[in-house]
């Protein structure tokens, strides 16, 4: 019994420690972003742009494929149901609204968590186990400012952009099914797709993607900086990073949706 309580205790303690470490990383990062100039360390453009190219531009294709095919699947599935009600035309608005509000942001975030979150953790993690983080520290270069800040800032701006691309390609998938298979007139399809789509649907989705961007970047960096134990450690940290991001993205999605649902924002 005492052993059981002890193990609960140590578990809680380690969770508190992880949360503390995570929040301290978040705090430090925001400090360097907003108050770095006070220490004559303003944000540098070049590393942020480098990260933006890597995170944003090079992820377009994979985001396109995932959301495009999801749009197709969504159109096919809903067409089957809606045709029973005689409302095949509403496939257009169903696809556009569910992609913009939900599937676009979430799928894009999950894809990016797999691609970029893993890359962030593996990169920082292998720097950690190869003494490179310590080397930065001894050179009086703050690792959070040098490594974490550009990644967080870059992803914060790139994930919404990728989400817009995801939204558009998802709707394109729906359009292809709607026009080619369901026989809806192209002009009518586009009109219906945008008729019921409000500005709120779009900013709901984009605001989610901002939250997801922070989750992916911070979880990735935190796991990377806390990597221990050589190559095995890097692998483990990368796995934990991706899994944690996935879970947190879904949970955060639920919360943000809840906020919009219950507060009528």
């Amino acid at each position: 019994m005492i052993k059981f309580l002890e193990s609960i205790g140590t578990n809680i303690l380690s969770w508190i420690k992880i949360t503390q470490g995570f929040l301290s990383l978040v705090g430090q990062t925001f400090y360097w972003i907003f108050f770095g100039f006070r220490k004559k360390r303003p944000l540098k453009q070049e590393p942020i742009l480098d990260q933006m190219v890597f995170m944003g531009a090079r992820s377009i294709i994979i985001v396109f494929f995932v959301t495009f095919f999801t749009g197709i699947v969504l159109a096919m599935q809903s067409a089957q149901q809606l045709s029973k009600l005689g409302g095949t035309i509403y496939v257009a608005s169903l696809v556009s609204i569910s992609i913009c509000r939900e599937l676009g942001p979430v799928l894009t975030a999950l894809v990016i968590a797999g691609r970029i979150g893993a890359a962030i953790t593996a990169e920082i993690g292998s720097m950690q186990v190869n003494e490179q983080i310590e080397a930065l520290d001894t050179m009086a270069i703050n690792p959070v400012r040098f490594l974490v800040v550009p990644k967080v800032v870059a992803l914060f701006f790139m994930l919404p952009c990728l989400t817009v691309i995801g939204d558009l390609s998802g709707m394109l998938g729906g359009y292809i099914i709607g026009v080619n298979n369901l026989g809806i007139n192209s002009h009518l399809y586009i009109q219906t797709a945008f008729e019921y789509l409000t500005l709120k649907d779009i900013y709901t989705g984009l605001s989610k993607s901002l939250v997801f961007a922070l989750i992916i970047a911070f979880v990735g960096c935190y796991q990377g900086l806390n990597t221990r134990g050589g190559a095995v450690g890097v692998g483990r940290a990368t796995t934990i990073s991706v899994v944690t991001s996935f879970i947190l993205i879904i949970v955060a999605d639920c919360f943000v949706t809840g906020i919009y649902y219950f507060t009528n924002l």
Partner: peptide, 22 residues
């Protein structure tokens, strides 16, 4: 931390694995 940083600039360190940023 600021003072530590100032002191750190006064010395260099050569690591076992060289620790170059790859």
């Amino acid at each position: 931390s600021d003072e530590t940083e100032a002191v750190k600039r006064r010395f260099g360190m050569c690591f076992q694995s060289a620790a170059l940023l790859d």
